[in-house]
Amino acid sequence: MLSIAQSESQQRAVLLQQQDALLRALVDGSQIPRGFDAAQVEIAATSLARKRRREAAKAWPTVVRWLGRDFELRFAAYAHNFPLPTHGGPLADGLAFLSSLARETPLPDDVRLARFAVGLRYRWRSRGLHLRVGPAIKVLLLRRPIRWVIGVRLAFCRTDANIKIKIVTAPWSKC
């Protein structure tokens, strides 16, 4: 019995190595494993990259509105260096994209607000985005005009009814 179990785990280890090699060739341009058709791998890699970009764009419409025609190029530059997050799909991917953009340029208010709302529902943990289970409180300062945004997640429950977001206009910005 032990030898069967051992051979099964060996089988899985060999497969993992093979699947990982193909995946690396497809998503980060690593060397194409022996025996694969290079043209096929290239077409599949392009198709995966296009899908990744389209899905992130769909999940983050405010970012597309902000970057316009630059979205494609800047996302491609980001995706080249950052692998797809392990959890959270396109929402997580777009969030990581924003973090990389924020290092180079200030984000506009509507984008920061969208990111703030996501941060109330989810938390970033070990290379992925996970739904929050505990309470949370977040504060954001918008610049134009100056406003405070306060967001609270009330209870140990996942429904949106437990999320309150209030936008407060700073008194001095009224004059």
Binding site: E8, Q11, R12, V14, L15, L16, Q18, Q19, D20, L22, L23, R24, L26, V27, S47, L48, K51, R52, E55, P83, L84, P85, T86, G89, D93, R127
Partner: peptide, 25 residues
């Protein structure tokens, strides 16, 4: 299909090697 291996995500469905070893797994 498989969609991840190790720490890497494909973001889409990828084909399996059509071998007996793969079939077992």
């Amino acid at each position: 299909a498989f969609v991840r291996a190790g720490e890497r995500e494909a973001g889409h469905l990828l084909p399996l090697p059509r071998t007996f070893a793969m079939l077992d797994v």
